[in-house]
Each structure stands twice: as structure tokens, then as C-alpha cells.
Design a protein around this nucleic acid. Structure first.
Lengths: 144, 144
DNA sequence: ACGATACTTCGCGTGGAGACGAATTGATGA
DNA sequence: TCATCAATTCGTCTCCACGCGAAGTATCGT
């Protein structure tokens, strides 16, 4: 049994990594599949899995298995929820977060299976959606 | 120049250690000298100095040099202040924090120079104020 | 002027965080 | 049934966080 101090420390540990904070920000609008998240972040699948596990163990995320995909969503109570609100408020206008959101919008506009196919070129997609001023545009179905 | 994302990550890193969180909670009532803080936490002075430095670099603490003593106090703006509020709210009733507060009350009731004298026995003081059910009792002047 | 005191900086050792690729698990579809 | 694919687990490497003691810096008291 861990006390409230250790619990809060675990929450802060989970949020003490840029990739994990970016994931949290990406999940604001609704749940996402692991492959969609990682298409934006760009780490090895095993690494991303470890990050998601840490966020889940800290009580910040919940998972839902749907076929061979696993969807994560924000799910926090108490101190974790408060920390989450702090994060979203602090990074509302952060450029890194905006770039992620733009790329994510383009990705979620595609069918889910397209993301992990070998011919899928994230870099090309990033070029089409990130640099121009329009932050987000496409929005279709799969975000939730 | 670091962006808001790195800044928030640094804040969370600083709060991702039990000793540092305890320090933050101890400083709620006002500034404290390093020796007072460390009498409660019980680490090597060099280690405590490093912890305080990290909290200061993250924008959570400020220092004030007074003679040969250095006093630290909470001093946060923006995201750091929000994170601080989250911490204090989450740990309002935490037992570890209450024990620290009780010991701290006994320590601040003493003259500052007494704390680091060789015959000063923190363990004895801890026995007098922490284990019994009365959470805090001594309270005199110097907490602020 | 000199020693004592409060704190910081430096150097070092140890353990854990974070990265990857390889192997495993579980569900889908031919 | 068996190949495929998403995700996780495992093994390994590297590097940084965190602990300490020793040395350095600044201030006070005599």
C-alpha cells in the first residue's frame, strides 16, 4: 500500500518526460490507438509501450483492447486529474503540441490500418500538415 | 531558450522525488533555513543543496541569503505555481507531511543555531512530537 | 587575524530510467 | 490451420539521477 506522497511522486515521474507529456496532450480529444500515437512521436514500439505503461500505472491513462489494437485514453481521478488539468492548461498554446495536433489530425483522417503499412511515410505527411499556418483541419471519425 | 514543454517537464522532474515534495510542503507556511529543512529530511547537506538547487532551477523556489544562512521560500509563477497548488491540494492530509510539519514546529520553536550543534538530537525530538496522536503542538513564533 | 560555522561545489560510486532489437503473445483473416 | 500483424515483454546497453564525503567559499565571532 503506497501513501499519497508516493502516489503524487509517481504522477510527477510519469509527467517528467517530453514524450509522455506529448502523449497526454494528444489524448485530450479522445482515445487513440498505439500505432497512431507512435506515428506522431516516432519511437520504437517497445519504447512507446513502456511509456504508456508508466502513464497507466500512475493512474493517468486507461486502455481498451479492440481486436488487435489497443486504444489509450485519459482517465484520471483525484490528484492525477488535477495534475492533468495543470498540464493541459500550461501547454494550451505550446508549439510542439500544436505541431503534434496537426500531424495527428492528418493521421486520424486516414484509416487506421494505413498507419503501419510499410509505404506509409510519416515524414511526407508531416511536411504537408505541420509547416503551414492552418493548425488542424481534417477530422473524420476514428478519434473516438 | 527552452519552450513551454521542456519547462513543464523540468517542473515535473523537480517534483518527482519524495524529499523535494516534502520540502515544498514544509515551505508552505513561509521561508526556512537550509539547516532547518535538513533537520527534518535528514540527508547529507550536499545532497539537500542539490535538491534545493533543482527546485530553484525549475522556478519553484527562491533563495534569500541572510548572513551565513540561506533561506528558501516558495516562489512560483505560471505553470510552476499551478503545479505547486496541485501538490499542496493533493497532500493536504498526507501522514508523511503531517509528521514533517510536527517535527518542523518543534524545530522552529528552537533558536536557529541550536539545530546544527553536535548535541542536538533530532531523533529525540522526533520521538517527542511525532509518534503520539497529537499531530502538532508546539508553535511559537519563528515559522514566520 | 583567525577559527568556527553554514552552505555549495566537486568527485566518485551505484542503481534505475530510457533507448533499441529480438522474441513472445494474442487476435485477425486467408 | 497457419501466416500476419499490433502490441507487449525481455535482454542489453548507455547515461543520468542520487547518495555520500572532501574540499572550497563566504560570513560571523572573538
Amino acid at each position: 500500500m503506497t501513501g499519497p506522497l508516493d502516489q503524487l511522486v509517481a504522477i510527477h515521474k510519469a509527467l517528467a518526460h517530453p514524450a509522455r507529456v506529448r502523449v497526454v496532450m494528444m489524448l485530450r480529444r479522445g482515445e487513440l490507438c498505439v500505432c497512431q500515437i507512435n506515428a506522431v512521436i516516432g519511437l520504437a514500439p517497445s519504447t512507446m509501450s513502456a511509456h504508456l505503461r508508466e502513464l497507466k500505472d500512475a493512474g493517468l491513462l486507461a486502455e481498451r483492447k479492440a481486436g488487435r489494437w489497443v486504444h489509450y485514453r485519459l482517465a484520471a481521478e483525484g490528484a492525477a486529474a488535477a495534475a492533468l488539468r495543470t498540464v493541459t492548461a500550461a501547454l494550451a498554446g505550446a508549439p510542439e503540441v500544436a505541431a503534434d495536433a496537426a500531424l495527428l489530425a492528418a493521421i486520424t483522417a486516414l484509416p487506421v490500418e494505413a498507419v503501419t503499412r510499410p509505404e506509409f511515410d510519416v515524414a511526407a505527411l508531416r511536411r504537408t500538415c505541420c509547416p503551414p499556418r492552418r493548425p488542424a483541419r481534417a477530422r473524420e471519425k476514428s478519434t473516438r
